[in-house]
């Protein structure tokens, strides 16, 4: 059983091109990242809607704020580690605190850049962005959702951070619908254990649930697309059905999805949890797949943790 796999930068660029052709307020803002954001075609079609400031992320985010405050609709497209890490204060002060209508698109997030090493891994972006008030965080799980998040973001006036996955992932059921930032989705019912996943880990959670079923464990899978604000209602009601919760994310276990779910549960209905992701280490050298396997971020690894949790 081989599933078709997608680089979400493709649907990202297709959608942005479609929107930009109709809405001239839409501009892409880059840091010498036109190629790595898959925007060569965009730049060719709409040279005036492409603002490439060169290798200068702080400037890039500040410029985007100015463009937005003047009435344009900037999509900042840059490798996530540099966009979020380098320009953090611009994101906080110029975008979030100033309520500037900018969409920050973290390209190649997580461990997409596997072999290039920890400087290029963006495992902290979700935690860093989550700590900033007034910033909506959307983390697409497949190409359809990448596209629907872009469409929603183009119409929204709030400051937004989204990830655009690079390493290839399969499609997730149900993502053809229009994006609703207020909703998390139960993808699979189950009553022994819950697996809450986000982004490129949603398909891993689904495969883990299938493995668990074979060994007689009924796992519920919840797909979170909006990391902040969290759909507390769906999560609390779904998670109350099982006695344990595993969270899975392509990011550090400090401050991301696992932390968000733990904050919610511990203050409402404390539940046993396992937070899966990249622990407090800089990942070893290797491809994204190697790093996932290294940290058990694969169906077998998730099933194993879920089994251990309910034993």
């Amino acid at each position: 059983m081989t599933k078709e796999l997608f680089d979400c930068r493709v649907s990202f660029a297709e959608t942005l091109i479609e929107l930009a052709s109709k809405d001239k307020r839409i501009v892409a803002v880059c840091n010498d990242s036109i190629g790595s954001s898959n925007l060569k075609e965009f730049a060719k079609l709409f040279p005036e809607q492409m603002i490439n400031v060169g290798i200068a992320e702080q400037n890039m985010v500040g410029v985007a704020a100015g463009l937005a405050n003047a009435g344009l609709k900037p999509f900042v497209c840059a490798a996530s580690p540099f966009l979020t890490g380098r320009a953090m204060e611009q994101i906080k002060a110029d975008i979030a605190y100033s309520r500037s209508s900018v969409v920050l698109c973290g390209m190649s997030p997580g461990v997409s850049y596997g072999e290039l090493g920890p400087t290029h891994h963006s495992i902290e972006d979700m935690s860093w962005m989550r700590a900033i008030a007034n910033l909506t965080i959307a983390i697409p799980s497949d190409p359809n959702e990448t596209s629907s998040v872009v469409q929603w973001a183009a119409l929204s006036s709030e400051p937004i951070f989204m990830r655009v996955p690079r390493h290839k992932i399969p499609a997730i059921p149900g993502t053809e619908r229009a994006f609703d930032p207020t909703k998390a989705h139960v993808l699979r019912e189950g009553n022994d254990v819950s697996i809450v996943a986000i982004g490129g880990m949603v398909h891993v959670a689904l495969d883990a649930a299938a493995l668990l079923e074979k060994s007689g464990t009924s796992a519920q899978v919840i797909h979170v697309s909006t990391l902040k604000p969290l759909d507390e209602k769906t999560l609390l009601s779904a998670l109350s059905k099982t006695k344990a919760v595993v969270t899975v994310e392509e990011g550090t276990t400090f401050g991301g999805l696992g932390s968000a779910v733990a904050e919610l549960l511990s203050q409402n209905s404390p539940t046993k949890m396992k937070i899966m992701g990249i622990p407090a280490v800089f990942a070893p050298t290797g491809s994204a797949e190697f790093i996932f396997d290294h940290f058990g971020l694969n169906p077998e690894g998730v099933a194993k943790e879920a089994t251990a949790l309910i034993k």
Partner: peptide
Amino acid sequence: FMKPLSFLNGHPS
């Protein structure tokens, strides 16, 4: 160079 567990990843540390 850039192989699993190498000291020599794509950027020097």
